[in-house]
Amino acid sequence: MSLLQKYPAEVAAILARYPADNKRSAVMPLLYLAQRAENYVPAAAIDEVAVLCEIEPTQVASIVGFYTLYYDKQAGRHRIQICTDLPCALRGADEFAAAVCAHLGVEMGGTTADGKVTVEGVMCLAACDRAPMFQVQNGAGLTFHENQTLDSVKALVAKLQAE
């Protein structure tokens, strides 16, 4: 089903935010919408966003490629993205990330066997004072999890895997 059929109100609201002759501006919010259902932007959605924004599909694909929060491939249902950047690393983020990976039995970047969770390392998330921390991204959006421990992660993963 097309985005327009699935989310007519959202599409209209997004387009209304930008000047009528600059529809291209809607490409980023529309891509979030396109990612909502399956956690990645399917090829057909790229074509549809191109039509909605009155640009070439290649121009839409470039946006998916440039920005790290868009994906052109499926991964786990939830992406646990642990900040391992300098400020967090100074507060043990690398060790924390290693422990999370060990707990889930995956390498960094890997996905659990049940396809529920992918673990990734990411750059600073503006929560340096609350390390270790990570965000969970799925089609529905992004949530921050701060001042984490291995136990809190275990609980969260259990919840996600039970879904």
Binding site: R79, Q81, T84, D94, E95, A97, G121, V122, M123
Partner: peptide
């Protein structure tokens, strides 16, 4: 140095 554990991928 801290152990070089994780290289950010994303």
């Amino acid at each position: 140095a801290r152990a070089k554990v994780a290289q950010p991928v994303s």
